[in-house]
């Protein structure tokens, strides 16, 4: 039910993030209902009634305390199963970065996104580079690597549909990757407060089918070097 509020997922690792969310709902949900249910039930069941004194239970002996300690131990075991699923999804999204088919440089600047496509040498500053203000064009089903840097303060690159988010810290280059699974236009937001017009710092992720991407490339980025579309990456052969 809660999951239906999520925007559509269009990335590979997004599926695992969503299933982590679902797992947490399944683990935490019953405990939540149990706790709230008991409060409500006890509040009604044990409200003051004449001739019914309260019992004197301190919960200090081990046998009594077990009523709260055993649930504690169960919660701990369930915690580890959350850790396990979460750890795997995290590694997939943030640590194991597959070989990219396309490298794009993301420059964050108050309050705009600039996407730079590499030139002949594969570098982002030589000849034949192409840059785009606010729009990131990528092919579907290809691994895209982002080399992100900030010119001023901390920004955060977020695409809810990709289940992707990464802060960009001035002074370092931060890499991230994603693979979109569905053509379409998706919103990009800056989600780290970066000043007065923070809310205007938006962009669009344009995921194109293989054909459309080729067309776009011909038209806007004819200089696209062979190495920019990394042919030996596994993603390119899909």
């Amino acid at each position: 039910m809660l999951m239906s509020w999520l925007p559509q997922n269009v990335s590979t690792f997004g599926t695992d993030i969503d299933s982590t969310l679902r797992l947490i709902i399944f683990i935490v949900g019953p405990w939540f209902i149990l706790a709230e249910g008991l409060i409500l039930y006890f509040a009604i069941r044990y409200r003051k009634r004449p001739g019914k004194p309260a019992v004197h239970v301190r919960g200090e002996t081990f046998r009594q305390a077990a009523w709260v300690l055993i649930p504690g131990v169960i919660v701990m075991l369930l915690d580890f199963s959350i850790d396990n699923a979460s750890g795997r999804a995290w590694d997939e999204a943030k640590i194991e970065s597959p070989a990219p088919a396309l490298n794009v440089q993301v420059t964050a600047e108050r309050f705009a996104w600039i996407f730079t496509y590499p030139g002949h040498t594969g570098a982002f500053d030589g000849k034949g580079t192409y840059w785009s203000m606010g729009k990131l064009y990528v092919p579907v089903n290809q691994v895209v690597r982002l080399n992100m840097r900030s010119m001023d303060v901390i920004h955060s690159f977020a695409v809810p549909n990709l289940r992707m988010r990464q802060d960009i810290v001035p002074g370092r280059t931060i890499t991230a990757w994603f693979e979109a699974t569905r053509p379409g236009n998706y919103g990009i937001q800056c989600t780290e407060l970066c000043g007065f017009d923070h809310y205007k710092m938006q962009g669009t992720l344009v995921v194109l089918s293989a054909d459309d991407f080729a067309k776009w490339r011909q038209k806007h980025w004819p200089s696209a070097p062979a190495i920019a579309i990394n042919s030996d990456a596994e993603g390119a052969n899909k």
Binding site: A35, F42, Y46, R47, K48, G59, G87
Partner: peptide, 29 residues
Amino acid sequence: SVTTILISVPFAIIVFAMIATLWGGSLIF
């Protein structure tokens, strides 16, 4: 992440102890 989620254990115990305090009481609202 592991340490964070682990904090649910002491809090779960405190919360359940409070709920257990209601059990068998003579609650005045």
